[in-house]
């Protein structure tokens, strides 16, 4: 099975978020971008399938600025066989539809049976890209998926937790999946593999090539105008009490009269 994993580098989870000087986006100065969140699960799921379906290959691809290289190397260190960086224009790499168009265009020359991505990216949380790529390629797609298993000679079975319950699906290939959780927690890379990945080749598709392929669809239509951090919560209003009953009474009064969360 040819498995392509879509990777979007996101800031390390401990990053202190700040707005850029123009206030329009996250200040990426000094921020480390890594392979994280649901994309890590997608890589894990790809590797599990590779281990279970003989002859499988995992190809990691990423659209964005040069920092994509780091995240792609992380995927190689974990066990991906190949990596491709698709260069983004200076403005608009965060438009999920433009990202999807660029990725789908690159996929015209990369073989795939299964596309795996995250349920949503850890930064923008759009949950748009996987479905949009699938629509461009004319293949089925499913988001918020857990537990993808091979089924039959050329199919997959998986679960999808929804508001109504847990759905079980079977699908033929090719298809695209936005992953919520693999069978296992994401593995960590071994040091020798990390060292080896530093020298691994990463194929590059440059932006002019992508732009030419996209033609009139190469300009972004979703642009970040403002990035704002919430006013820090002033800290909890602590409830003073002598007895549990008093605590309960005071809390319920605050919830009804001040927070107005129920009548």
């Amino acid at each position: 099975m040819e498995i392509v994993v879509l990777i979007k580098p996101v800031p390390e989870s401990e990053t202190r978020l700040r707005a850029s000087p123009d206030g329009r986006r996250l200040d990426s100065e000094g921020v480390r971008f890594v392979l994280a969140g649901y994309d890590e699960s997608a890589v894990e799921q790809a590797l599990l399938l590779k281990e279970n379906v003989p002859g499988s290959k995992v190809h990691a691809i990423s659209f964005g600025p040069a920092r994509c290289g780091e995240a792609l190397r992380a995927a190689i260190a974990l066990g991906a066989d190949a990596a491709t960086w698709i260069e983004a224009p200076p403005e608009g790499s965060d438009d999920p539809i433009l990202a999807a168009r660029a990725l789908a265009s690159a996929l015209s020359s990369i073989p795939y049976d299964l596309l795996l991505g995250g349920k949503h990216a850890g930064d923008d949380e759009e949950g748009i890209v996987v479905g949009a790529v699938a629509e461009l390629l004319g293949i089925p797609s499913f988001g918020s998926v857990t537990d993808v298993r091979p089924a039959g000679p050329s199919g997959l079975a998986f679960q999808r937790p929804t508001e109504a319950g847990i759905e079980s699906w079977e699908t033929s290939l090719p298809c695209a999946i936005g992953l919520q959780q693999a069978w296992n927690d994401p593995r960590t890379a071994k040091l020798p593999n990390i060292l080896r990945s530093r020298k691994a080749p990463i194929a590059k598709v440059d932006w002019p090539t992508v732009a030419k392929a996209l033609g009139s669809e190469s300009s972004p239509r979703s642009l970040s105008e403002e990035f704002r951090l919430p006013a820090p919560r002033s800290g909890a209003k602590m409830i003073e009490f002598q007895t549990p009953e008093e605590a309960a009474e005071k809390l319920v009064r605050l919830l009804r009269e001040e927070a107005k969360v129920f009548p």
């Binding site: 438009d95 539809i97 999807a100 949503h120 949950g127 748009i128 949009a132 699938a134 629509e135 999808r160």
Partner: peptide
């Protein structure tokens, strides 16, 4: 969860910009 799944596909099919959440 279905609505979020649909958004990207519909946007591409219908030629629209998209945002979720």
């Amino acid at each position: 969860s279905f609505g979020r799944d649909l958004t990207g596909r519909l946007a591409v099919r219908w030629g629209a910009a998209a945002a979720t959440g």
